[in-house]
Simulated scan of single mutants.
Amino acid sequence: MAAIICGSLAFDTIMTFEGRFAEQILPDQLHILNVSFLVPALRRDFGGCAGNIAYSLKLLGGNPLPMATVGSDGADYLARLKTLGIDAQYVRQVDDTYTAQAMIMTDRDNNQITAFHPGAMMQAHITRIEPRADVKLGIISPDGRDAMLQHAQQFKAAGIPFVFDPGQGLPMFDGPELANFIDQATWVTVNDYEGKMLSDRTGWSSAEISKRVQGLVVTLGGEGCEVWIGGEKTIVPPVKAASIVDPTGCGDAWRGALLHGLEQGWSLAKCAELGNRVGATKIASRGPQNYTL
């Protein structure tokens, strides 16, 4: 069975700042913020939520179908997917624009500052989701605004259960739009910051959201996860990483593991458990698509 993964394909430029952001930013001078960070280490990786989730799910033996767009510079990414054995039938190449680009800077405490150019991602809505007998589930991860709205509707119309994981795309939507996403979704996953924003905008607590779907997961970074089902909360403990090398892509590694568990019919808590293990494995490696399980 296959899983449709809606989200971005992006080239990540990853930089390492050897200090702490907090030591460079003066809180009382934020109105005239003008800072520069020396980044001795820099590399370029294949990234984007759809690409990273597909990588994780493929490592676990799944059949990911990323649904995304690349620009005129996307030939290398298409070749990358082919090398990984990932089916790119839903990846569309758009001329006259660049593939999405993320510029990510990480400090010594693993805090990150990211600048993101969406490029071809803004046309992701041109590819539609249609019913398919071999597609068992899907996920809405951060993507173009129109794509997220339309793909959620299309998943629902096609009868395909899906995870709503808006990630950094959550601020694009108001309360009624987010409520509509939740009512269409089968599961919802957010981190603790996003979870607070989701509750603020919808007016629903985590317990209330969990009663509208089959389950809600709130990830807590190094503290593990909250799994909410029917208004009841279970804490899934964290897995300690062997070493902390690079947090980039950990959330996507977790998402891929979640999809694998859901495909197997596992409980949501067991899915989150696997996500924590895979995320801990990823954080001990460099790059969102350079680890093995």
Score class of each variant (00 low, 15 high):
270 K>D: 05
272 A>T: 03
265 G>M: 11
230 G>N: 12
242 A>W: 00
262 L>Y: 13
222 G>K: 12
225 C>Q: 11
268 L>A: 07
224 G>W: 09
238 P>F: 02
247 P>N: 06
223 E>L: 08
234 T>H: 13
271 C>A: 15
229 I>L: 13
264 Q>T: 01
224 G>D: 11
254 W>Q: 09
259 L>V: 05
224 G>R: 09
228 W>A: 00
219 T>Y: 09
249 G>A: 06
231 G>T: 05
236 V>H: 03
254 W>K: 08
226 E>C: 14
267 S>M: 03
217 V>P: 01
221 G>T: 03
271 C>Q: 04
219 T>I: 06
259 L>G: 11
243 S>R: 15
243 S>G: 13
236 V>G: 04
252 D>I: 04
268 L>Y: 06
263 E>P: 05
221 G>Q: 08
244 I>W: 08
268 L>I: 05
231 G>E: 12
233 K>R: 15
246 D>R: 01
266 W>E: 05
217 V>T: 06
240 K>T: 11
267 S>N: 06
254 W>N: 07
236 V>D: 03
235 I>M: 14
234 T>W: 00
230 G>E: 12
222 G>C: 10
255 R>I: 01
270 K>I: 01
244 I>G: 09
237 P>C: 09
226 E>K: 14
261 G>C: 05
218 V>A: 10
229 I>R: 13
262 L>P: 04
259 L>I: 11
261 G>D: 01
227 V>A: 07
222 G>W: 03
270 K>T: 02
222 G>N: 12
237 P>D: 08
248 T>D: 00
251 G>Y: 00
268 L>T: 01
231 G>H: 03
223 E>P: 00
239 V>L: 10
243 S>Q: 15
259 L>D: 11
258 L>Q: 02
219 T>P: 07
220 L>S: 15
262 L>E: 07
242 A>H: 02
268 L>G: 06
222 G>T: 15
231 G>R: 04
242 A>N: 07
258 L>D: 02
233 K>S: 12
243 S>V: 04
242 A>G: 11
239 V>Q: 12
232 E>I: 08
255 R>K: 06
234 T>D: 11
226 E>Q: 13
256 G>M: 10
218 V>D: 04
233 K>V: 15
259 L>M: 15
219 T>C: 13
228 W>D: 01
269 A>S: 14
248 T>P: 06
235 I>V: 14
238 P>T: 11
243 S>Y: 00
265 G>I: 08
239 V>T: 14
248 T>W: 03
234 T>L: 15
229 I>M: 13
228 W>T: 00
264 Q>G: 02
241 A>Y: 04
262 L>D: 06
242 A>I: 06
244 I>T: 14
244 I>M: 13
254 W>C: 10
236 V>N: 02
242 A>F: 00
260 H>C: 07
247 P>Q: 03
259 L>W: 14
257 A>W: 01
257 A>S: 07
234 T>F: 05
230 G>S: 10
241 A>V: 00
227 V>E: 04
249 G>Y: 04
241 A>M: 07
230 G>W: 06
